[in-house]
Design a binder for these strands. Structure first.
Lengths: 350, 350
DNA sequence: TTGAAAGCGCTAACAC
DNA sequence: GTGTTAGCGCTTTCAA
């Protein structure tokens, strides 16, 4: 078996120093003289030396790798621009601090859980980022019980101030969106959400309910609909809405892509957005601007969600014992052309 | 400093065997008696032992991790469903063989290159998957020169039979699409591609050209347009097309999302798909079916592209020295409603 | 300012 | 069948 790769020993030999000295040069230890540093660096250069991460990880008990946990692959998650965008943010935050990202894999809940346990107990990652937040999450409980460093994207279901998380103010965002529609004269406002186990959904629903209640508008159960996936583009949901005794005149929809799918479904059924029906959605995906209708959407700054998540986790790794912290990423209401005044008087909102 | 984690030694002690025996039990070595296996497993259970991947990686000189290289983050890549879908495939192929996925990070070409070198020389990954194929790729050359195991998604620019790759038959797919339009009576057919450095683009263009040539239809340069990104939804491209002296009556478009963006742009300009203009796109994204128009699209089975890529790479890792291999993932022409007959006689194609 | 040596947790060759 | 031992490549006391 020939030599597999150049090690610290080879460099040491060529530079006529001890391996430990080479190690110190790599770490740029100030106690090494400039002279030897130069000599060692020349040797590294000459030999084409590259440090071995695995060996370093073993010695340091730290890999500089962050584990990413995604919901099951069948999830809606993969079907809209949220995922790639948050990933870009995560990647950028990690990269700036010389961390890498390892993906959890697994189709079923159980496989994913196993994967996380392996990552954690196997020492493959220094910390974990949960890309979603939902009710009673198995994996979150596990990480908490192990006291393993992690951050959450989304609001925690419980232990709010023991968990570090990055979130939007989904409550306020939904409340504002609802108020906007109310001010436009709408009273029959529907709420089309994603999976109701997600905290994001819960918060938005609260905001929606509170906005209506404040204005003395009664909540109608049939106006609150959980749309399973984006798969059928909300066609079923659209039909269901139109079949109501009193169909809503405006909708708040959890995601731009779903909004677009539903707008199309409505069109086929003879209902046009915004003429017959207004809609506001979330995410402000890049196509919201050139779709038809152009979507009025709440931009939740997905990239930042990811970027801050990486950074927060890394901060916690560098400062162990620092208290749990929250970051709220601001949202922007982007007014386009998918809403129209209704009834009484159509006012314009700035 | 207290004990950080349970090691093989602790298990050995409790089970009253040597550490190497524990190691053999983990590997399920047949030379260990069932009796001791049971005893050791009980000890592992009792202590809550989990093997340390890092230590194992160091000893084995193998991490069971595959590195994923994505194009720069500004790339169109992140903006359409290709990425999440291929990732799901990669993930599934890896997971089935107990491999994990590590993401390359980096915004610029240079950062990404550095990242790959670190992954490879640092021994973090056993192999690399390039999620794209383009002309004169720096990273590919590097991997080749290092003789480091990798697979390519897409057709290699050169050294076709020295490189393991997974691809569609993009040439034939585009040729078929073009022929379909010709049979519908179209002669003025435009070709709207993505980045022309991608091999995928090049192959499709060849297929397009050959289909036209076969039918004796001259190639017009102004019909072949490279659309920078999906960002502006192809609005500029749409305008440019309509400003031509003889605008095409049909288009072949590299991606569904771009097709949809352009269809909208055309609509605003008073041109309707498919009544005034036919279009065929690629990918058969999940929304192609409920968009308007419903897109006639070539399904390239993106999931399989990823799935087979993982599997091929893992196969090569398990059988070092096995020759380079290619896998061609079949495509399907999905006929929907974005094309219409033109001129002479509108025939229906099965 | 530098070197020697122990050790991170595991595997595998070699012994018995 | 099982134990002993020598690494894998690096970091880090402890000595000098």
């Amino acid at each position: 078996m020939g030599k597999l790769s150049i090690t610290i020993k080879d460099v040491a030999q060529l530079a006529e120093v001890a391996p430990s000295t080479v190690s110190r040069v790599i770490a740029n230890n100030p106690r090494i003289s400039e002279k030897t540093k130069v000599r060692v660096r020349e040797a590294m250069e000459k030999l084409g030396y590259h440090p071995n991460f695995i060996a370093r990880s073993l010695a340091n008990q730290s890999t500089k790798i962050l584990g990413l946990v995604l919901p099951g692959s069948a999830d809606v998650f993969y079907q809209n621009p949220f995922f790639p965008t948050v990933l870009r943010g995560l990647s950028e935050g990690a990269q700036e601090n010389q961390y890498s990202l390892l993906l959890s894999t697994g189709k079923t809940e159980e496989e994913i859980y196993e994967g996380v346990v392996n990552m954690v107990q196997g020492g493959m990652v220094d910390g974990i980022i949960l890309l979603y937040s939902r009710v009673n999450d198995h994996i979150l409980s596990y990480l908490r019980s192990k006291k393993f460093p992690f951050v959450l994207i989304g609001k925690p279901f419980d232990f709010d101030d023991e968990i570090t998380y990055i979130d939007n103010d989904n409550y306020t965002a939904a409340k504002e969106a609802t108020s906007y529609l109310i001010e436009l004269g709408h009273e029959k406002i529907g709420f089309i959400s994603g999976d109701s186990d997600y905290m994001m959904t819960k918060e938005r629903l609260k905001g929606y309910v509170d906005a209506l209640t404040t204005e003395g508008i009664p909540i109608k159960k049939e106006y609150i609909i959980e749309n399973g996936g984006v798969d059928e583009g909300g066609k079923q949901t659209a039909k269901r809405i139109l079949s109501l005794a009193e169909p809503p005149t405006a909708l708040i929809i959890g995601d731009d892509l779903l909004a677009l799918g539903m707008a199309n479904s409505f069109r086929e059924l003879g209902i046009r957005v915004p003429d017959h029906l207004s809609m506001i959605s979330f995410n402000n995906a890049f196509f919201s601007d050139f779709s038809s209708p152009q979507l009025t959407s709440v931009d939740i700054n997905i990239f930042d969600l990811g970027y801050q998540a990486s950074r927060s986790l890394i901060h916690h790794l560098k400062h162990p014992g620092s208290p749990a912290s929250k970051v709220i990423i601001p949202h922007q209401f982007i007014e386009r052309c998918s809403c129209k005044g209704f009834g009484k008087m159509a006012m314009t909102i700035s």
